[in-house]
């Protein structure tokens, strides 16, 4: 945590930073535990080629969206429209392949990301300029984008045969046993983590989330930063939409509906505080892996299909309660340390 500019609370912040890192270790441990237990029950979960691939592959798309969500939540906002953005971008991807088959497919990535970024820009502009809470705005665009999607798609459906093989192969191929999709997601995660942790803009996002008014008084460009956070979230949802098309091969008008709760859930499980200012994109990424892996592990562990949602809900609650208890302890310890140093 670079705390050069803050002096009064410098030590406090850096300690909180290291605590946050511990939190991610805890989530990672939970993830490893789930994989270990499930693998003990059924070795194929990890040791068959398909099992290993799916373990890495399935959460990749959610991970991208969760990283974008984390960036937004860190600024004390939330983006509920990601599922609808993902759906629209996935359909756009398919549509491009149907209508412009001559277009080289890597260009589709650029279009999908740019399109998602535009939708994110709409969210961001409404939030940043109109000063309306993001929960409300993105709830509105959740409806509106989905409506546009259904209206545009109708009962059309993009099938695997509409898309070029090279593009579809991205969804399933591996390089050195690691799926391409996962590599893309990790690359994005790396960039986001680097920016959020070392760059001025990233640190400012944390500052804004900790105390928007103070950030404004301090002279940070709050409006612009928040706008950028939404554009990033939109762009990543757009990218996720393109990858969804590659991975699942069929796109209809309901792609990605309900994804917003999983993305917020992944970020929260990963230790991104819903009130902004703390957490990391790493945490959100691990949260996504934990969430999706638990989903896949439950049937292997013999938990009836119907109870899966209940388990996921209990996990989200468990994660935030644990967080809260740990944070309360931490605050007490700081208080003791402060008293000790004053004496």
């Amino acid at each position: 945590m670079s705390a050069r500019t803050w002096n009064a609370s410098q030590t406090m912040l850096s300690r909180l930073g290291s605590f946050a890192r511990i939190r991610e270790v805890g989530i990672l441990a939970a993830f490893v535990l789930v994989v270990a237990v499930t693998t003990a029950k059924n070795p194929n979960f990890l040791f068959s080629p398909d099992g290993f691939r799916d373990l890495l592959l399935t959460p990749s798309i959610l991970m991208l969206v969760a990283v974008g969500q984390a960036v937004v939540i860190i600024t004390r906002n939330v983006d509920l429209s990601v599922g609808s953005v993902l759906g629209l971008s996935a359909y756009l991807t398919g549509r491009i392949f149907v209508d412009f088959p001559s277009l080289p497919w890597p260009l589709v990535f650029v279009i999908g990301i740019a399109f998602g970024a535009c939708l994110g820009l709409v969210n961001g502009a409404l939030v940043a300029f109109a000063k309306v809470p993001s929960l409300v705005i993105t709830l509105g665009t959740l409806y509106a984008y989905r409506g546009i999607n259904v209206w545009w798609t109708g009962s059309d459906r993009i099938n695997a045969s509409d898309m070029p093989d090279g593009f579809l192969a991205l969804g399933t191929d591996s390089v050195a046993n690691i799926p391409v999709l996962t590599l893309i997601a990790l690359l994005v995660l790396g960039c986001a983590a680097w920016y959020m942790h070392t760059q001025r803009g990233g640190r400012e996002l944390y500052a804004i989330g900790s105390d928007p008014d103070a950030a404004r008084l301090y002279g940070l460009r709050v409006t612009r930063r928040v706008l950028v956070a939404f554009v990033v979230s939109g762009a990543l949802a757009g990218l996720a939409g393109v990858l969804y098309a590659a991975r699942y091969g069929t796109v209809n008008s309901q792609v990605g509906s309900g994804f917003e709760l999983e993305a917020v859930g992944a970020a929260v499980i990963g230790g991104v505080a819903i009130f902004g200012g703390s957490g990391s994109v790493f945490g959100a990424a691990i949260g996504a892996y934990l969430l999706m892996t638990i989903n896949r592990a439950l049937p292997v562990l013999g938990v009836d299909d119907f109870w899966q949602r209940a388990v996921v809900g209990a996990l989200i609650l468990g994660a935030i309660v644990l967080d809260r208890i740990a944070a309360a302890r931490q605050v007490k310890r700081f208080a003791r340390m402060r008293e000790a140093s004053h004496d």
Partner: peptide
């Protein structure tokens, strides 16, 4: 050996297929 539910959703059905193959080698 099992009846699973994909909710008539591409993604869920796809993931349930993957889970089936792992659970029952």
């Amino acid at each position: 050996v099992d009846v699973v539910y994909g909710d008539d959703d591409d993604q869920t059905s796809f993931d349930k297929t993957a889970a089936l193959l792992q659970t029952y080698p």
